[in-house]
Amino acid sequence: MKKEIIISLPSKGRLRSETLKIFKKRKLNIKFEKGDRDLIGRIYHKKFEIVCIFQHARESIVSIANNTSDIAISGIDLLLNSDLEIQKKINIYKRLNFGHATLAIFCMNTWIDCQTMLDVSEIAKDMLKKNKQPMKCSTKYRLLVEGFLEEKNVRGVEVIDSIGATEVMPRISQSSLIGDIFSSGSTAAANGLRPLKDGTILKSSAALLVSKKSFKRQAVKKLLKLLSK
């Protein structure tokens, strides 16, 4: 049985800096053997043997699902957008008070006739009739967006995958809508987009996640308790 606890942490951005604050506050000092750019660190603690792996927040989810790591700090949005098989293997231990963001459906400001998902439904039907093609919605969150469209009875919208800079898609008519995450909304506004009135899919934040398998270990439980204090 392994003794060390492996924690997967966000490798960059605000998620990383806020995560490091949590560790610092609890006097869990991460030591990097190969300097600041090292993506693996160790915490020398009297009670725990901890290895920290710095990964993309999306990779962290996969990492605890396949038991490469025991604990992770990642976004709720990323967890809920992953395959059900992955979600089944992970528990949300605690929502953390940073990384707040909202996943929502946006349309162009100049679509002045479109305020709600009911409008999307009707416009999609009209576009299918006129263009002989379904309306397209670009997103990095396919599963969540598809589920939301189903819940709102929206038909005739094809969800297409986007890797990044999703906000530009409607401007270049590559898609008509986007499903994207925002915190202040300034990028969306700068690109002439507005969220739909009832288009909020999810209110997300960072969270302390744990593999269900690892949660059986007492040491993991104790460390989670310490991190969530």
């Binding site: 162009m108 100049t110 009209d126 006129k130 397209k136 409607p170 401007r171 008519s173």
Partner: peptide
Amino acid sequence: LYLKMKKLNPNNIIANRKVKDILQRF
């Protein structure tokens, strides 16, 4: 915005829709 958009070419495309279709529905 509607008043401004009325001055645009009605066949201009915005996110795969014609300006005239948007105005008509509005």
